[in-house]
Amino acid sequence: MEYTALKHSHAGLAYLSGLLFFIRFFLFKVSPGLRSNKLLKILPHVIDTILLVFAVMLCLQIAQYPLTHLWLSAKVVGLLAYIGFGVVAIKRGSWPAFIAAMLSFGYILGAAKAHNALSWLVFF
């Protein structure tokens, strides 16, 4: 896949993933019975899997890898935090975990856009 198409697809899927997490959290808070909805259980995993595959393809295409490029390492750490907080937020309906997950998501986006692990400092 061409670099530009791959980059934009990856970014679009990242925004979609974050938006879907946001929507799912509020849907589950309003109607906990929706937790058993098959589409709401499966779709995020499909989107996130494709997102991760595109991330690996991008790393290979631009020859930049986590552990050798700090901004990519920061994105991986941010992703692990986002996943951990997100699981707690969705399973327990925890507001602090939801806020932490959204902050982690914002950090990942900042690191990606600035190509800098200190992305929030760069913008201020």
Rank of each mutant, 00 (worst) to 15 (best):
L16A: 15
S17I: 04
S17A: 14
S17R: 06
G18W: 09
L19Y: 03
F22S: 04
F22Q: 04
R24K: 12
R24D: 08
R24A: 08
F25Y: 15
F28I: 01
V30W: 13
V30L: 12
P32Y: 11
L34W: 11
L34H: 05
L34P: 05
L34M: 13
L34S: 06
R35A: 12
K38T: 14
L39C: 05
L40R: 09
L40D: 08
L40I: 08
K41N: 12
L43I: 14
L43G: 08
H45A: 11
V46F: 13
V46A: 15
T49P: 07
I50C: 12
A55Y: 15
L58P: 06
L58K: 07
L58F: 08
C59R: 01
C59T: 09
L60E: 11
Q61F: 07
I62H: 05
A63E: 15
Q64W: 03
Y65S: 03
Y65Q: 06
P66R: 02
P66H: 03
T68A: 09
H69T: 13
L70S: 13
W71S: 04
W71K: 03
W71H: 07
L72D: 06
S73D: 01
A74T: 02
V76E: 02
V76L: 15
V76M: 10
V76F: 08
V76R: 00
V77Q: 00
V77R: 00
G78E: 02
L79I: 04
L80E: 03
L80S: 04
L80T: 07
Y82D: 02
G84M: 04
F85R: 00
G86V: 01
V87A: 08
I90C: 01
K91E: 12
G93P: 04
S94L: 00
W95E: 05
W95P: 00
P96Y: 11
P96H: 11
P96S: 10
P96M: 08
P96I: 10
I99L: 15
A100F: 13
A100C: 12
A101L: 07
A101F: 11
M102Y: 09
L103R: 09
